[in-house]
Amino acid sequence: MTISRLFSARRLTPYLFLLPAILVMATFVYLPIIENFYYSLFRWSSIDPRFTFVGLNNYKRILSDSIITVSLRNNVLYAVISVFFQVFIALVLAAILEGRVIRPRWGSFFRNMLFLPSVLAITVVGITWQLIYRPDTGLLNQFLEGVGLGFLKRTWLGDEGTAIYSVIAVSQWQWVGYVMILFIVAIQAIPEELYESARIDGANLVSQFIHITVPLVRETTLVMTTITVIGAFKVFDIVWVMTAGGPNHASEVLGNYLYRVAFRNDEMGYAAAIASLLFIITFLLTFVQLRLGRSGEEV
């Protein structure tokens, strides 16, 4: 086999097809990650671009930074609540919509209406909900007052106890319908005969759900769980728009804290270290998912 044969156009074809993707990914995704590790070893800021080598000090600082602890806790909360609503509830809703209880015409109406929030821009959503959460003139407190639940009124975004939950709730509002559609698609792919024979055997809707729907959408469930969990660790924009992490860092998440440290506190190096932490977390989560799912070949 000669060199020229080895590098013949035919062999190169797949690589050429892949080249643009590889170039783009390498330049804008992977190179920055490597650079980020390098930057995290220095102390530098946007205003004073002199690099001072500090070794692993930025990482040591992460361990003792109480705001990191709060952020991590909030990210975990985000993940747990999101998995409950965007995977479990969304699946149940999808099953009900596809379960012949609701007429198809209404089914597709409901489906589209619940999906709508997910097409809205994050600032549209964020500002709208800021208005809804306003303590005095906001929709939510007025509603609570109106239905006789006035004692539940809160300064939703200004109270350290409720701020992060209020933001998480908005995310659920926005994304449940989106995931529901993906589940609907998956459920539609389940052969109708399975349900038919279950019905003949007298299985009710709940047991049809448990014994047919859940096992057969396992793959989608896994993918959605992974995407939701990782999404919960990536979250930045909705928090930045709604609370910017306040009050008193109560709604801080890693992404938000990173941005604040980099572009507000003038500590680019430390921000890079936080970014590394975020990278390690998402990497580990992906790894765990691959082990659990063993669906690596299909992904």
């Binding site: 995704v29 660790f233 941005y259």
Partner: peptide, 8 residues
């Protein structure tokens, strides 16, 4: 997470 790449 795109945040990781943000600064670089």
């Amino acid at each position: 997470a795109p945040e990781v790449s943000l600064i670089p």
